[in-house]
């Protein structure tokens, strides 16, 4: 069974995101970019299926600028067999990505698509669900445990108040939650091997998908700064402040 893993290049999790001075987006220039952490988990899940003999080939896909090649090379170093870059300078929204992935799924015929439940840059949490809907496939989101059978998968997901286990038919789209696994490190020998693995570059036009934005970004701004707390000396002062400054009593 082929497994397809979409991976997104995002601002590194440990770097504090700041709006550009003109509010037109998030400042990215000169900052460390990494693979979306949820996609790393999806990648790790796929590799473990392959190591267990349940997956035959892992295809990593990234949609975006040429720099996404770097993210795909990381995926190849971690264990993907080949990679596809859908290259565009257009700012992609989840629906556009889902449409691109749909065409690639029809071309590659995987038995499973595993992706992160959301990307940490826009937190949209939509691409996996949209892809499943466009394909008419079963979906299981926020997976914290996956057991693959030959034509079904059992997926445990974390929900309010406990765990829910779904049995879904394959092919399917599964999105990963944080606790599914602990992603491995890319090792040097594998990084060197990854340089020789195939990386195909396509454009949205090659796939016949119109990726023009349907939404217009108006402005990106910092949340208003929170005021720090203060220490009061005694109860009388506290009451005074609650009454006259906070006006809550």
């Amino acid at each position: 069974m082929k497994v397809l893993v979409p991976v997104k290049r995002v601002l590194d999790y440990n770097i504090k995101a700041r709006p550009k001075a003109d509010g037109s987006g998030v400042e990215l220039s000169g900052l460390k970019m990494s693979m979306n952490p949820f996609d790393e988990i999806a990648m790790e899940a796929a590799i473990r299926f392959k190591e267990a003999g349940q997956a035959s080939e892992i295809i990593a896909i990234s949609c975006g600028t040429q720099a996404c090649q770097e993210t795909l090379r990381t995926a190849l170093a971690l264990g993907a067999d080949r990679a596809i870059l859908v290259e565009t300078d257009e700012a992609l929204q989840p629906l556009a990505v889902a449409k691109l992935l749909k065409v690639l799924v029809l071309r590659e015929q995987p038995g499973l698509v595993i992706c992160g439940k959301q990307a940490i840059d826009d937190d949209a949490n939509q691409t996996g669900q949209m892809l499943a809907a466009l394909l008419g496939w079963a979906q299981a989101t926020f997976a914290s445990r996956i057991e693959l059978g030959s034509d079904r998968a059992s997926v445990t997901r974390e929900i309010d108040g406990g765990l829910e286990t779904l049995s879904i038919t394959l092919p399917a789209v599964i999105t990963t939650d944080l606790r599914l696994n602990e992603p491995r490190y890319a090792t040097l020998p594998n990084i060197m091997k990854a340089k020789k693995k195939p990386l195909e570059t396509l454009t949205p036009a090659d796939l016949g998908v119109d990726v023009t934005s349907r939404l217009t970004l108006l402005k990106v701004a910092e949340p208003p700064a929170r005021q720090g707390g203060i220490k009061v000396n005694d109860v009388a002062e506290l009451l005074d402040k609650l009454k006259n400054e906070a006006k809550v009593i």
């Binding site: 590194d12 999790y13 440990n14 460390k32 693979m35 090792t187 040097l188 990084i191």
Partner: peptide, 20 residues
């Protein structure tokens, strides 16, 4: 490190791909 690996100075290495 790739060169060091080829010359047998090191056995293996894991390279951090993210700040985390």
């Amino acid at each position: 490190l790739a060169e060091a690996l080829r010359s047998g100075m090191i056995i293996d290495a894991a390279l951090a791909q993210s700040e985390a």
